[in-house]
């Protein structure tokens, strides 16, 4: 039952989403909004700005380094979280040392 409801719901949403997709700028065309001044600066200025040939690298470690810092924090958070979940023993009974 729940499965059927989920399917019907997803199909309904799917129709609306298709309508939305038909409105999106065409895929791969060079004059989509995404290919604007932002892309231009990255492509033409990355070398001068950062000295990196690889623009992706330039973005990851220079233009958007703050994001990368937080990204590593995500990783760090997950590691600590895994520690916290997996650490054995002493469940709620206090330290047994």
């Amino acid at each position: 039952m729940a499965n059927k409801v989920a399917i019907v719901l997803l199909v309904c949403i799917g129709m609306v989403v298709l309508l939305a997709i038909s409105e999106l700028p065409l895929y791969g065309s060079p004059d989509t909004p995404a290919q604007n001044y932002v892309a231009e600066r990255y492509i033409q200025g990355a070398l001068d700005d950062t000295g990196a040939l690889n623009m992706v690298a330039a973005i990851v470690i220079d233009y958007r380094a703050y994001d990368t810092l937080i990204e590593t924090t995500v990783l760090f958070t997950a590691i600590i979280a895994v520690f916290l979940v997996l650490k054995k023993g002493t469940e709620g009974k206090g330290e047994q040392k």
């Binding site: 995404a34 290919q35 932002v38 892309a39 990255y42 492509i43 990355a46 623009m55 992706v56 330039a58 973005i59 990851v60 958007r64 994001d67 990368t68 990204e71 590593t72 995500v74 990783l75």
Partner: peptide
Amino acid sequence: HPLPQALMLTGIV
């Protein structure tokens, strides 16, 4: 466009 690729590196992590 290099930006989405950079973003998705983050997304993968």
